[in-house]
Amino acid sequence: MKNFMKIIIALLVIVALIGGFFATSYNGLVNAKEEIDGQWAIIESKLQRRYDLIPNLVETVKGSMKQEKEVFGRIADARAQMAGAKSVEEKVKASNELEGALSRLLVVMENYPQLRSNENVTRLMDELAGTENRISVERDRYNIVVKEYNKKIKSFPKNIIAGILGFDSIPYFESDKEAKEAPKVSF
């Protein structure tokens, strides 16, 4: 009877160890999967930031550049008229056009002393670069957690538990073939 009790206790210990290993493995796989889902949510957040940011910045820069373009375009046109003027009347007319264009420029400069297209373009590029860097960092982090998860579900004996419980391999975040070309932003 004593030997029978030892066998029962040994079996219970073995079942407890297997059950504990099974529960620990399951919880580890669930945590790893949740880490992947959380990291993917961060990537989606950064992609949404890009989606929201680019059109707004492009429109802001376009608006500033349009205003400058109009003023400087008028100045350039008036200068060209002045250079091409032959008669006094043509020269007066061209001079008045140039004076009017310069007045508009002064009004713009008074109202918008910091209006410089180059700064807006630089800001746009900095924002885009920052957003792309954030996305790149989060993609890398995503791939790291996917790698750890995939290693867990492919390693023995967790691969058996993962197979029984339906934990499948998750693909890495890979660049699209078209991503090898830099995106073009036009104004």
Rank of each mutant, 00 (worst) to 15 (best):
A32N: 12
G84Y: 05
I36V: 06
R141P: 08
G19N: 01
N133V: 04
P183V: 11
N133P: 04
E110R: 12
F72S: 14
K66E: 13
R104H: 10
K147Q: 02
V58L: 10
F187K: 09
N118G: 13
L53I: 11
I153S: 09
E174H: 11
E34R: 10
Y142I: 01
I18H: 06
W40R: 04
T24F: 15
V15Q: 11
D140T: 08
D77K: 11
G73W: 01
P157H: 07
Y26D: 00
K154T: 13
K62R: 14
A78Q: 04
Q48F: 07
F72G: 13
S45R: 10
K177I: 13
G130R: 04
V71N: 05
V146G: 03
Q114K: 14
E44T: 05
N27H: 00
R74V: 03
R104S: 15
M5G: 04
V15N: 03
A179N: 09
D126T: 12
I14S: 10
N56L: 09
Q81H: 05
S95V: 00
K86E: 15
K93Y: 00
G63E: 00
E99I: 07
S136M: 08
L47M: 11
N150R: 10
G38T: 03
A16E: 08
V145Q: 06
I170P: 05
Q39T: 05
I7R: 11
E44D: 15
E44I: 06
A41R: 10
A23S: 13
I8C: 11
V146W: 02
S95P: 05
A182Y: 10
E68T: 14
F4H: 13
E90W: 02
F156D: 04
I161G: 01
S169V: 15
N159E: 01
A129C: 06
V88K: 15
L53H: 04
I42M: 11
K158I: 10
D140M: 05
N96G: 12
G28D: 03
F173A: 10
G73K: 06
E132M: 11
V13H: 06
D176L: 05
G166F: 09
M125Y: 09
S175P: 09
A80F: 03
S64Q: 13
V30Q: 07
V58K: 08
R116Q: 15
I161P: 01
K91F: 08
A129Y: 00
F156M: 01
L47T: 03
Q48Y: 03
R116I: 14
V61E: 07
M109Y: 14
A101G: 01
L115P: 13
Q48I: 02
A78E: 00
P171F: 12
Y112W: 10
V145Y: 08
K46C: 03
R116A: 09
E70R: 09
V92H: 11
L17N: 09
I170Y: 10
S45H: 03
K154W: 13
E148H: 11
L165Q: 14
E178K: 09
L105G: 13
L128R: 12
R74I: 00
A129W: 05
L11V: 14
E132I: 02
R139L: 07
V15M: 13
K86H: 12
T122E: 08
K158Q: 12
F22T: 14
G100T: 15
E132Y: 03
D126V: 01
V137G: 08
P113Y: 14
A94I: 06
R139A: 02
D168Y: 04
K33P: 04
N31I: 00
V13A: 12
V108S: 06
N159H: 04
D140G: 15
I9M: 12
K33F: 00
R50E: 08
V146A: 05
N96S: 12
